[in-house]
């Protein structure tokens, strides 16, 4: 074995990573430039808003409901160590609205939507439907990518807003039914404690996550290899890359919003 081959392997992975970053950047640029130039496919956009937004509601609702409930239990148990059990409503509210609502919504939609987008576009590529679009004078970036990216960017904040409410409801239910909190006091504490900036920062995050989810689905779908295996790999790559980018951008955005 060549003594330098481990070094070569590191070099190869580094180059592959840089090339991937370059391709994603170019694809993002192309998406944004098509976003502002006609024609626009409004009907496609409405379809995608339905598929990405409306049909994700059950998943997002269930996820945030259980998480809100678990959060209330944890904070109650943790708070008991300092005799501050009463802070449950405030901490649940801030935890859900600033962080867990948008992030969990983003991750669940990444699993549900970016995989579906990658599989659909990948299959379209493998069965020459993308080529067919081009021969029918329709730009696939405009017809497939732009409506999905715009729809997801708009749908995710709305989903996260619903998720926030349901997450707080989860905390409320657990606190009132299991932990003997007074319902009216719980709600008043939540409402009085939350600042508009808490809510807005969470929704801005969600919009960024939506952009990432749809972009990764489209990018990996368009880059799909041949056959069932190629589409399968594209689907996996879409979900994994969308999830990682969501968590990374969440960290960066939180730093931007909340460091003084």
């Amino acid at each position: 074995m060549n003594p330098l081959s481990p070094v070569a392997a590191v070099g190869r992975s580094t180059l592959a990573l840089l090339a991937a970053i370059g391709r994603v950047t170019l694809y993002t640029g192309a998406t944004l430039s098509h976003l502002v130039r006609p024609p626009f496919y409004f009907r496609e956009f409405l379809n995608q808003l339905m598929v990405i937004g409306y049909f994700s509601l059950p998943v997002v609702g269930l996820t945030t409901l259980f998480t809100g409930g678990a959060l209330a239990l944890q904070i109650y148990a943790g708070g008991a160590r300092f005799n501050v059990e009463a802070v449950v409503p405030q901490i649940v509210a801030i935890g859900i609205v600033r962080e867990l609502g948008p992030v969990l919504t983003g991750l669940m939609v990444a699993g549900r939507v970016s995989s579906a987008i990658a599989a659909e576009i990948g299959t379209m590529k493998v069965t020459e439907q993308i080529d067919a679009l081009v021969t029918l004078s329709t730009n696939p970036m405009k017809y497939l990518t732009v409506p999905r990216v715009v729809a997801a960017t708009i749908a995710l904040p709305l989903l996260a807003a619903v998720g926030n409410v349901i997450g707080i409801l989860g905390g409320y239910l657990v606190s009132v039914l299991r932990l003997d909190f007074n319902g009216a006091t719980y709600i008043r504490n939540t409402v009085e404690f939350l600042e508009p900036s808490d809510i807005i920062s969470g929704l801005v995050k969600a919009a960024v996550f939506g952009f990432i989810v749809a972009l990764m689905g489209c990018f990996h779908g368009m880059a799909s290899g041949r056959g069932a295996q190629g589409v399968g790999r594209a689907t996996t790559n879409a979900v994994v890359s969308a999830s990682i980018l969501i968590l990374a951008s969440n960290f960066i955005l939180t730093g931007v919003f909340f460091t003084e």
Binding site: T127, Q129, A132, T135, S137, N139
Partner: peptide, 22 residues
């Protein structure tokens, strides 16, 4: 874009697998 559009409008193509939009 307009030139591409006009160019492609002169063509029709039948794809191997049909390539119909599902």
């Amino acid at each position: 874009n307009a030139e591409r559009d006009a160019f492609l409008a002169r063509f029709g193509m039948l794809f191997q697998g049909g390539a119909l939009f599902d």
